[in-house]
Design a protein around this nucleic acid. Structure first.
Lengths: 110, 110
DNA sequence: ATTGCATACCCAGTCCCACTAGGCAAGAGC
DNA sequence: GCTCTTGCCTAGTGGGACTGGGTATGCAAT
């Protein structure tokens, strides 16, 4: 019924990508698959969201890319966190906790 | 010491408003004040976000309004939940839980 | 060899929504 | 008079997820 919540994802995709890359370099497609697997398919990462987000993050210097070869021997662009990206991830994690705690206080108030 | 930046609302404003109104009719200004108080000022409800959201919700039939007089004797538009709004609130609460659980699984994965 | 599928990337355009930056108005208090 | 607070509203902006396309490669089965 309710697919991936577009509005809710708004703003958190960057943090999710950064977090995924904190385990090591990955190419875009693998990032999407990993996120979907981790969340039990609750989050569905559309390619039209993913690739622009990766472009954005790279332009901001939070990740950097390098062409390589995927596990299945295909051409793929591998991304990895920069130091700035690692710092940014920590900020976003804190921010997310603050935010969700606040919203939860309201929505779960009985 | 500068106050910590307000958390972005991304997608939750509608649910927050509906939840606020679940305690009874309120006018716009009071909704904003109540939400800020409830969240310890973590969420800051800008009027340029609030009033368009109220308009949106009413247009969708989730709330309905009525002009009245505020506690301080000023002209104010009071909003209350419709049945559709009440149903929608329940959906959004579930959706919120599903979403945050999923994101938490990722961001807090160690 | 050709069809089909999964992998992998990209872009132009759209839509939604929070936010910015104002304005309007009335009551309270100085 | 003047300012502060309360209360409502709107036009415009910008960011970000999504839609709907396209390109290309590797593999497996027909």
């Amino acid at each position: 019924m309710s697919p991936s919540p577009a509005a809710l994802l708004h703003g958190t995709l960057d943090a999710l990508i950064l977090k995924t890359l904190s385990w090591g370099p990955r190419h875009g497609y693998a990032i999407a698959r990993w996120l979907e697997e981790m969340t039990g398919e609750v989050l569905q990462i559309e390619e039209g969201s993913l690739y622009p987000a990766l472009y954005r993050l790279e332009r901001r210097g939070l990740i950097q890319s390098e062409w390589g070869t995927s596990e299945l021997n295909r051409r793929a662009k591998f991304y990895q966190l920069t130091d700035a990206g690692r710092a940014r991830l920590m900020e976003e994690q804190e921010e997310w906790t603050r935010f969700t705690d606040a919203v939860s206080r309201v929505l779960r108030h009985a």
